[in-house]
Design a protein around this nucleic acid. Structure first.
Length: 279
DNA sequence: TAGGCCATCTGGTCCT
DNA sequence: AGGACCAGATGGCCTA
């Protein structure tokens, strides 16, 4: 009694994420995958090899039986419509395996490239930290907010106060990320989150009030502390603020004071000051 | 322990 | 035919 395998049945076998496809990792990828999946692999590889071996053995028999069809038999299963799947001969199985292996490798590389790009993005948005990385989704959200905030600066030609700027940066971010951004700025998130605005001391409630008086100086014990990454103001704005006068009302609502704090006088970030773009 | 995040595998679809 | 891209599924790791 021989078992016949179609591409479908092989696919089903392959649904096991640690399936036989693992055996084909390129040497470069192997390292990563091994790291991630070694435990899994160790446990499953024997089974996978065995299954594969079974497939191959059966295929040898299939070579002769290929003309036959499995019309007879199993009434319990509804007959499949559509073109019949070809049985997996040994050669076909090998080709299928190779295709899958190569596709997996390509997909891994593609995702690594995507992750590299994301890592690059992490480095240019505020709050970069090697030790506590922003998640992918938070990185994208923060980047979106950052781009929006910077474009508002350009549009209005006015520099924002820190509080409002951070508010804009943190819009839609999770609480931990908000805390992180606040921590990088040495701000208390409760001082700028709308839902906590009422908790702010009266003198803090004007978005511009605290910053002009005490730039980066409002710190409370509840804040996350380093190592949380850095967000120096030159990184935040990539800009010398005094080049922009003092109003971002359309964007930051509160009238802005002159942010001529020494913190803003850092060197232009070369990444954003290239090509004649004033950023 | 549940939930969030992540890496990987996979099959489908579109394009060259 | 083969590659790129995508989304779903799955399982591991970590943290609250």
């Amino acid at each position: 009694m021989t078992k016949s395998y179609t591409e479908d049945s092989v696919m089903l076998d392959a649904q096991n994420p640690s399936g036989w496809t693992d055996e084909c990792h390129s040497s470069q990828d192997e390292h990563d995958v091994e790291k991630k999946k070694s435990a899994h692999k160790d446990a499953d590889d024997d089974d996978d090899d065995e299954a594969l071996h079974r497939l191959e053995e059966d295929d040898e028999e299939d070579e002769e039986e290929e003309e036959e069809e499995e019309e007879e038999g199993d009434d319990s299963k509804p007959k499949r419509r559509g073109p019949k799947k070809k049985k997996m001969t040994k050669a076909r199985l090998q080709r299928f395996k190779m295709r899958r292996m190569k596709a997996n490798a390509r997909e891994r590389n593609r995702m690594h490239g995507l992750n590299d790009a994301l890592e690059s993005l992490r480095k240019v948005v505020p709050c970069y930290s090697k030790t506590q990385k922003l998640s992918k989704i938070e990185t994208l959200r923060l980047a979106k907010n950052y781009i929006w905030a910077l474009s508002e600066i350009l549009r209005s030609g006015k520099s924002p106060d820190l509080m409002s700027f951070v508010q804009a940066l943190c819009k839609g971010l999770s609480q931990p990320t908000t805390n992180l951004v606040a921590g990088c700025l040495q701000l208390n998130p409760r001082t700028f989150l709308p839902e906590h605005a009422q908790e702010m001391p009266a003198h803090m409630q004007g978005a511009s009030a605290s910053f002009s008086a005490h730039p980066y100086s409002y710190q409370t014990p509840g804040l996350p502390s380093p190592p949380y990454g850095t967000m120096d103001s030159s990184h935040v704005f990539h800009v010398k603020p005094h080049a922009y006068g003092s109003a971002l009302e359309p964007f930051f609502e509160a009238p802005l004071t002159d942010c001529a704090s020494p913190s803003f006088d850092g060197p232009l970030n070369p990444r954003l000051s290239q090509n004649g773009v004033i950023l």
